[in-house]
Design a protein around this nucleic acid. Sequence first.
DNA 1: TTTTCCCTCCCCCAAAATAGCGAGGAGCAG
DNA 2: CTGCTCCTCGCTATTTTGGGGGAGGGAAAA
Lengths: 236, 236
Amino acid sequence: MARKLDDLLERLGDATDLSALDSAVFDLRDRYDVEHLVYHSVKSSGDQWAALTYPQPWVDAYVENNFQTIDPVVLSCFRGFTPVDWKRLDWSSRPARALFGEGIANGLGNQGFSLPIRGPSGQFALFTVNHRSGDDTWGKFTRGYMHDLLLAAHFVNERALALDGEGHAPHQALSPRETDALTLLAAGKSRAQAAERLKISEHTLRVYIESARFKLGALNTTHAVANALSRGLICL
Amino acid sequence: MARKLDDLLERLGDATDLSALDSAVFDLRDRYDVEHLVYHSVKSSGDQWAALTYPQPWVDAYVENNFQTIDPVVLSCFRGFTPVDWKRLDWSSRPARALFGEGIANGLGNQGFSLPIRGPSGQFALFTVNHRSGDDTWGKFTRGYMHDLLLAAHFVNERALALDGEGHAPHQALSPRETDALTLLAAGKSRAQAAERLKISEHTLRVYIESARFKLGALNTTHAVANALSRGLICL
DNA sequence: TTTTCCCTCCCCCAAAATAGCGAGGAGCAG
DNA sequence: CTGCTCCTCGCTATTTTGGGGGAGGGAAAA
């Protein structure tokens, strides 16, 4: 069963652009005979984008109305790690029910599960399998194909995030002291506290912060820390 | 081949404590006949911990010397999304070479690949496969078992993060305005500039920053921005 | 309906960060 | 040796933030 995936995963590994991903997603949908598959980059440094099989009117409506801010699937995935089965979510709130109804009206299936994936700079994406079936059929389906689709999802996600992240700046390295300084500031220390911790004068610390700011092209300390964090130059 | 994993994945899904994970990791190692398997929670709101088959002396040395701050594997995974093959990393720096030599001396294999995984609150973990072989054997091994082990890795990671995250407060979400404020500050804007951008008074903006600081338990603006970034609450 | 958040605005003053000008020594590569 | 970066320290003045009070309207949930 998993072998059914091998050539596809191979293709994904070699994918150099997003259209290859897109076609892979369509291919996956046909192989597993589900209603829809969606790869959706919810939060990213660049533009949001997606590789999906949803009908365009639904996508447009979703984007225009900023549905991701009320979609229980997105919200739940965003604060979790594990795959989420749609039917275990709380659809009780009014906007959520409206969203679900709208989806059905636009050709979506009533069942689904979604998988959250994160990148190093706060990128956040979803991979969703959408299907039309009763609860028992759906249960059998998830038991049978969950592993396959998760594996596929991870590959799609990895490839997508990698492609998405390719443009990111070749970061300038910080000196050890600069790293120390920014790390302490990111931890909430004031300049005086950080200087004390590093056993140097506050003025010296200031020099490090300024040179780090310069190297990172940052306008102030907060900006420098934010940059360093999102580039992985420091960590909390 | 993937069927070899089914019962293990089943077991993992039901795992309710870390020892179950631990035994699963040992089980995995035996099935695939590799040198070592490592699940390592590098960054987490709680304590760092791991489920691994490395010899204890090596683990102790690693922790004591804070090797994760110079380990190319950790550093590379931290700024990436995709699985990393050890031999494609830059081992040219002196401390890195020393680290590698120490590892070999402690019984580690010379080959490996590692997979980064992230959780919603900035948790960051690694799953590593370590093996002793020549480059060609290793190439065959990765081609043959990569998919299996990735799948296993994801399951271990998901389970581990879920267990790890169980005690953590479901961190308080920021209000839209608070998110806006922190996002602009992270982009290097001053309070005045951010207020202008949001078309509100600077006083109002300050209220948002303060309440965000309070919610995040941050000591100052920089701290709040760093927290929000690493928790994925804002992005650049 | 009441409560609870969220958004918006205002005051004052102390504390902290930023900007500008400096200086010298250590270590390493060409 | 010369130039480079890194590390260390000093001063003053200005700008920005932080902490402490408030207050009212609106929307959504309990």
